[in-house]
Design a protein around this nucleic acid. Sequence first.
DNA 1: CGGATTTTGTTAACGCGTTCACAAACTCTT
DNA 2: AAGAGTTTGTGAACGCGTTAACAAAATCCG
Lengths: 227, 227
Amino acid sequence: MTILRTPLADGSARGIPDATVARLPVYLRALNALTEQGVSTCSSNDLAENAGVNPAKLRKDLSYLGSYGTRGVGYDVEYLRYQIAREIGQTQDWDVVIVGVGNLGSALSAYQGFSTRGIRVAALVDADPKRVGTTISGITVSSLDDLPAIVEERAISIGIIATPGTAAQEVADRLVAAGVTSILNFAPALVQVPDGVDVRKVDLSIELQILAYHEQRKAGNDKVVGA
Amino acid sequence: MTILRTPLADGSARGIPDATVARLPVYLRALNALTEQGVSTCSSNDLAENAGVNPAKLRKDLSYLGSYGTRGVGYDVEYLRYQIAREIGQTQDWDVVIVGVGNLGSALSAYQGFSTRGIRVAALVDADPKRVGTTISGITVSSLDDLPAIVEERAISIGIIATPGTAAQEVADRLVAAGVTSILNFAPALVQVPDGVDVRKVDLSIELQILAYHEQRKAGNDKVVGA
DNA sequence: CGGATTTTGTTAACGCGTTCACAAACTCTT
DNA sequence: AAGAGTTTGTGAACGCGTTAACAAAATCCG
């Protein structure tokens, strides 16, 4: 089975590379920052600097979306912001459900950064009966058993796993069974899902372990040459 | 100025690709899982499946470390585990300081997954006087002003930024000034650091925005062809 | 002991992403 | 109106990472 890239309404095939998709939210944030500074037009150099990327890469990325700049002038901040927002689906809010309201799940439910990026924590779910019924960040925690009803009622397509690693696979299975088709997994475990379901994994330990590796090298025996 | 890859004690130059370094902790976790299952020897297929990667990629990755397997047999789980642990510096514990004890910082300080991966949260720091002096996860929160003393005293080289985005750059500057040379940044902001300092960024919103992009495509107009 | 079998380590091909470099297109100045 | 100056959009080169494929090296079995 092969899934084709989505064709446009005008028939042109448009496949945006994964690497580019991952940077579009960064550009969006940079554009928001520029708007707050009262900047209404910017060059690819300006925007690239704000986003922390190479200007050529930025222009290449934007070229996948269309031709939204003006040669000799630059980009209209507000116009480009809207185009990117539309492309990544941020003209609407996305309801998500968080499974597991331990320390991490609670912190995520209170995270300020979501709402401004079109993410709304719509429901909290936990397997522990002692936690069910409590209120966290203004949301009443529901039972894991109620997941299918919650997902259907609120048309939720994105779930967040914030449980211990041992529970991750079962939670993933239940999320998929309930109808969720995208999962963000914070648990330190690999989860298997059927085709058609996207999983992204954030592993807090691994990020630190990568830093530790480089630290070890620095402390050990790096050599610096040149001027 | 150019930084060379670290040569080995035996003089052979060994540069491990970044992509491989990022996967070594995953292999470590998979090996630990196998040990718990009582498996003492495994093939690259077994291990790759547990780690969720292509077997060829696994063997390629391991080949950067050395030749720790036996043809026709496979890998000794415990031996390989030790070799990887040594390579990524996990034979020692790494002390880290968390700056910002809001919801996220508090959750990180309580995170169980760190200790088993050689990460020890050694200190908590916050700029808010109301938080200074309180105890979180058994650690007394110190003032941001005490950062240099804390970093020096405990020989900390890794710092975690868990503040709002607006404070991120100043915190990064102070971490660097205090002597920290690796930073894990959870704040939704770009931070600039001098050469020689590593920064990794985890952006919770962006992960969800990427999922939302794919959701939009699924819901919109994907086409499926073939059998 | 020798051939069949297994599995690693490595080389080579492939593909994706990044970066360079420049023509095209726009503004500004005179 | 024409030339000088900007800045985008993109074709081409490059480099890195992934994957396939296979020789080398070990075990197993008759």
